[in-house]
Write a protein that binds this DNA or RNA. Structure first.
Lengths: 191, 191
DNA sequence: AACGATTTTTTAAACAGCCATTCAAGTTTT
DNA sequence: AAAACTTGAATGGCTGTTTAAAAAATCGTT
């Protein structure tokens, strides 16, 4: 039992440290030593747990993807209509514990590096397809078929674009305002 | 005269090589030697012309930003109404000679690295502010004040989001289709 | 047109530094 | 005692930049 526990604790600590360190220095530039220092551990122990730097990055993204998926599922449970479920998708993306500068920063680094790492690009494809199918399912109930694809593109690209901008921000973000803005965009696209 | 010429030729060659090499390998990973090989030159000559790797990157982005600004100006000249000028902004972003995988790829790398380089983040701020003011100027003529900001965000984030997606593409892009889709999004936002 | 002098361009080699990963030798936990 | 965990130090390799010297281009003068 605690054999599992200690490993899980270290994993989480190291992943949190990775998020902070990558945010501070950038994915391509950050070193194992910096991440280790951030976690109060040694570079060697990271390899002990994750095998390599790439393994650590994959685990970190897996962690964030999990959080996002979970937030989305939670929102879906309480939404009662297609439009509310669209709101829920947006709310999940701009949830208080996801829409922060360091995390948007990581996402940005993730996007930028996905084309050069099969493991990362696999995660990227899976996540994008999932979000896409969520959008399509709800839009089908709200729009005539010939307008669905344009609306989906507008909404999905909007979400990406907001994160992209957020990653550049030098001040803390305002998740509540982001959710309100996202709702207005949904209303703009689905009158 | 030809004293200037040779320098300009090398500059352009090296910048083109940078675009290709960064697209192939990623900003943070690409080496001076790889860029040099792509250009058929030596790493030392890059430093001779650009002073450093960061100087080369800045020059490369300056080059792309110039192309974008030029495309936008050209479109503005022939547009006769606010809506057509909005189309023109979109058309510039998805112009045949800008909306290609390698260039979207570079833009992605640019975005990801801007927060860590004062020189790059300066360029980023300038470009974003310029696009923003173009949008605002046209939207002012088309929408009541309280709806302008939401529409601007929707359009600007859409543009960023499409490029972000394009950078992940493994096939050549279809600029004409992208322009048509962008026009539909404009029509969606400005009925 | 020719030619030596001067400036500009090119690069091979040297330099100095940094990095991810491994490993052996410890420490802690079970 | 055995297994799990931790790390300092060593390894091997790669990087951007500088330097010095050669090659090419340009220029002033005849």
């Amino acid at each position: 039992m605690s054999r599992k526990r200690i490993r899980d604790i270290r994993n989480e600590e190291l992943i949190e440290a990775t998020i902070v360190a990558v945010h501070k220095r950038g994915y391509g530039v950050v070193t194992m030593a910096e991440i280790a220092r951030e976690a109060g551990a040694s570079a060697a122990s990271i390899n002990y747990y994750f095998g390599s730097k790439e393994g650590l990055m994959e685990a970190t993204m897996l962690h964030l993807l999990g959080k996002l998926r979970q937030a989305m599922s939670a929102g879906y449970a309480t939404a009662g209509s297609p439009r509310e479920r669209l709101y829920a998708v947006m709310d999940a993306n701009f949830a208080d514990d996801l829409y922060t500068v360091p995390q948007c920063s990581i996402w940005m680094q993730f996007w930028a590096n996905a084309p050069y790492s099969p493991r990362l690009s696999r995660l990227h494809r899976i996540n994008r397809a999932r979000v896409r199918s969520h959008f399509l399912a709800e839009l089908k109930a709200l729009l005539p078929p010939q307008r669905i694809e344009t609306a989906r593109q507008a909404l999905q690209c909007y979400m990406d674009g907001v994160w992209l901008q957020a990653a550049q921000s030098e001040e803390p973000l305002d998740p509540e305002a982001a959710r309100a803005a996202a709702h207005r965009v949904v209303d703009l696209v689905i009158p």
